[in-house]
Nucleic acid binder design. Sequence first.
DNA 1: CTGAAAGCGCTTACAG
DNA 2: CTGAAAGCGCTTACAG
Lengths: 341, 341
Amino acid sequence: MARRATAQDVANLVGVSRSSVSLVLNGRGEGNISAAKQLAILEAASQLNYRPNTLAQSLRSHRTFTLGILTWMGPSGFPQRMLHTACEKTTAAGFVSIWMDTGPAPDQEAQAISSLLDRQVDAFLVVAPELVEYDPPEALAGTRTLLINCRDPGRRVTSVVPDEFGGAVRAAQLLMDRGHTRIGLLVEEQPSALREDRVAGVRAALAQAGLPDPLLVPAADLRGGATAIRAVLTGPAAPTAVITTRERLALATVLAAAELGLHIPEDLSVISLEDGERLASDLRPAVATIERPDAAMAEEAVALLLQELTGEDPDVRQLTFVCPSHLRGSVGTVRRETVGR
Amino acid sequence: MARRATAQDVANLVGVSRSSVSLVLNGRGEGNISAAKQLAILEAASQLNYRPNTLAQSLRSHRTFTLGILTWMGPSGFPQRMLHTACEKTTAAGFVSIWMDTGPAPDQEAQAISSLLDRQVDAFLVVAPELVEYDPPEALAGTRTLLINCRDPGRRVTSVVPDEFGGAVRAAQLLMDRGHTRIGLLVEEQPSALREDRVAGVRAALAQAGLPDPLLVPAADLRGGATAIRAVLTGPAAPTAVITTRERLALATVLAAAELGLHIPEDLSVISLEDGERLASDLRPAVATIERPDAAMAEEAVALLLQELTGEDPDVRQLTFVCPSHLRGSVGTVRRETVGR
DNA sequence: CTGAAAGCGCTTACAG
DNA sequence: CTGAAAGCGCTTACAG
């Protein structure tokens, strides 16, 4: 490829100084440069296919229009939809996003932050694959930072999080509204703050209705889930509805039901508190889910960050998003005779 | 945050010139700077927490140690594992990766390339979520570029691709080795070069064995797949084995079998040509898969790219990776009496 | 062995 | 309205 044209090249072609080129191309020509010269400069620039070297611009102006995105792989991969939306929105605002996989190790994260800081990023966006507490490392202290799907226990950094607790409450409500009182809760074995949030939500909803705690069924994976839930469904006082904290556990429930000859939703209702894989909604009958509003969260987070970057302090410390419920064919009303027993 | 220290600050603290600082920190001190001063400089640098501004370094040296990664969302999201490995390997080599979602629109891609070029990236890595033909846009012509999971029909750009055709052949082989002759092929409705590759592979394997073409069953999604495959399994001359081009279609097959009371693998064998979701292997029985070697491809691609960047021309135009097969419980031997009929 | 100077490609006051 | 100059933070020949 031929050498990229510089502002000097454009200036030479027109017969003006670099300064004039810079002013015109940055929209500050009016009142400074004559209309004729402005036109000539614009024309020369496009003729030479001139594009400013952002390295030089940034070095001079101390603004890189670059955002550092820190993320890592969760049990079901990267937070794709959040990243997708975040990148889309930052790009639309003229920013470029440098995305780094910080991995699980803190020193790897420190290195990533260092490297991004060396590149003079304007701000950081931390995107967690699953809701966690995130203590921002000291290295981030001097740079604007916003958290998505994780919250700072110290509340120093603005964060945008889903109301997983509320989502769990709503799921339980949906079932209780339809007469369910014996509810199983199929959860992953791996403990986490997110799991506790969800379990607490279901528990709180049941308690408020005067119902006993849900039957907690832990399982390691899809296979383990099917085995565990089958045992419960064939046992005494089997639940009439199952809430799962994972989409794959919802699938496990559907598979177990099929094996047992149970029909959904006539014999068993199912709701998944997770919908990232868009798997539950694809089953037959489609399984009801609580949605984590990835796109909305990412969009709002980027808007907030851009606002902060332009100097305004939105004075928001934590923004919580509702997790909407999607009622589907997997939820039915408890049959009278079952309720009676 | 306090202002970042510059090389000048370090020089002042020690009492030497900027040049000396630069030389020492770039490992070119030996023979140029006295041992005592080298030590003093190193010490001062670490004391001031000095880190060079890469913007300035790059502007001067015409090297940014930055790679532009172009990718987009496929039917099952971003190519996570390839991105993960690619980023890991480039980071280990001291590069930073700027990842951009180019979306489906060519003008969005052009804009992304432009923006990365403005930032003087050293090279591009194009990572496709699914194997496709990729015609590199003109804008990439001047910059080193490497394709992962896509190939340049014009063969001008080096590419690393999986042998999807071979994987399909191997899947069919696995079944034929166990006596299967009536094989169903459950495919997504959406046509693509990848789908053709896979269908062609199965077809070729059967043809070579003197068997007729597989029974092609198209389906839109998981639900449609279950319906379609159930119709086939209850029809005349039902297949004894099903190969699916998608993991979710494998799940559809498992669900359909369960509903029909068919046992896997006794009554029906299943293989998935896709394994990105790690879903098939989680089912019971675990479904055999053909693996796309994401990590290996990304690793090799990065190695090739770095090699090219250091000036060596590896003179490789297209590197094809074998898609290994994973035999699992879903594949069984055809029962004698079935074969006989 | 060491420092002063030039220059990477820009922007931004500052004179005229 | 316009250009010459300084400077962003580095590296790299080049004199001494």
